[in-house]
Design a binder for these strands. Structure first.
Lengths: 209, 209
DNA sequence: CAAAATATGGAGGTCATCTCCACTTGTCAA
DNA sequence: TTGACAAGTGGAGATGACCTCCATATTTTG
């Protein structure tokens, strides 16, 4: 898997150029306003070459996303190794927001791709999710965090933060979400019986037909 | 504004047919896989007619979204009038999840449109956000909910829930997010000093260049 | 009922996407 | 080094979705 067939020298060079340009365009946020053909020109290769390396827009995005996620995962592991579990989780989540803030164009692009449901990003997402899952699991084992809400919920919240990145006051609101998640995760306050499974069997209680 | 010029009888009929079909296709989730021209056929009108009534895909979506949001807002007001503030908020949020669950195709479609940043949905979103803002404000006034995290954060979380609707175990995770948000919002536990503004000045603490 | 106003629909123009293949570049054995 | 085979290139052009335009049809009004 991830079969690494030795790439020819020029092919390697072109691929690199494509990726570099892609990262650039991503960060600028213009990924979807740009004709795909023009993108090839921009990177200094022919359309054919572009399409051979990355058959679709999504494939290209996936490639960029991969590095991004790898870096993030490294950071997660590093935090987990050097900090108490709860603090590691908190720091990681706060860091994610900071990172998105510093790379808004990229955040927006990725969010769009996710929502578009391309599914090509699923693999990369899984890696990121695994990292979050580990952080949460460690915090649960420490007894610092409740065990009745999974890491998936945290992922959803992060997803929401990324997807909404164009709101005015994004940064403050994003920090707010993290605060809510973190406080919400903290082991339950005075054990009052707010049961979150009470609506298990209700399908649509909204009154809308 | 929203100038309502009397529409000719057949025009009205066609418009209705278009909207009806749109709702149907939305719910089925196939809104983006369908050629826009074919959609006209499907609704039994010519392409020209479709484009006159709804100049773009987004315009059509906006129309459907509008009704949806109106219903939701009504419900919010109704809850606010009949329940204690905190309970009204909780019930509304839980209800949102139930509603999305019952209309997954629609939820997915809307999430996609939001992320696509069309902006056409901004108006409808604002209405929904206003409703949430009111619910939160009431709960804050009651002293049941913290005042240092705005309603925008709640919107982001909802956004994430909608956007991620294709995850396996969506329902459980969505309920989890709501639980976190609700517990996180609850007036602060023992006043321990977890300050959520501490990273105000940090731009990128993720260590990624 | 006739004329004026309003709406229809689908044929065809426009433009982004992607394919295909004649040609260039890199690799390797002798 | 050289020649020959493999691997890669790039851009012209086919494809097909989106949208416009206008001759025709329907509604409304005087």
């Amino acid at each position: 898997m991830t079969t690494d067939k030795p790439l020819r020298a020029d092919a390697q060079r072109n691929r690199e150029a494509l990726l570099a340009k892609a990262r650039e365009v991503f960060d600028a946020g213009g990924f979807f306003d740009l004709r795909f053909d023009d993108f090839a020109r921009l990177a200094g290769v022919g359309t054919g070459t572009l399409y051979r390396h990355f058959p679709t827009r999504e494939a290209l995005a996936e490639a960029v996303y991969h590095e991004e996620v790898a870096t993030l995962c490294d950071r997660a592991r590093q935090l987990q190794a050097t900090l108490p579990a709860e603090e590691a989780l908190a720091t990681f989540l706060r860091g994610m927001v900071g990172h998105m803030d510093a790379h808004q164009g990229l955040a927006r692009t990725l969010a769009t791709l996710m929502a578009t449901g391309s599914g090509a990003l699923a693999e990369g997402s899984r890696a990121l999710e695994q990292a979050v899952t580990d952080l949460v699991a460690a915090a649960v084992k420490d007894g610092a965090v409740r065990d009745d809400v999974g890491a998936g919920a945290v992922m959803m919240a992060l997803h929401g933060i990324g997807a909404a990145h164009d709101r005015t006051g994004w940064r403050a609101e994003a920090d707010g979400v993290i605060t809510l998640v973190l406080d919400g995760l903290r082991r339950s306050h005075s054990g009052d019986g707010q049961r979150e499974h009470e609506q298990e069997s209700v399908v649509d209680q909204s009154g809308v037909p």
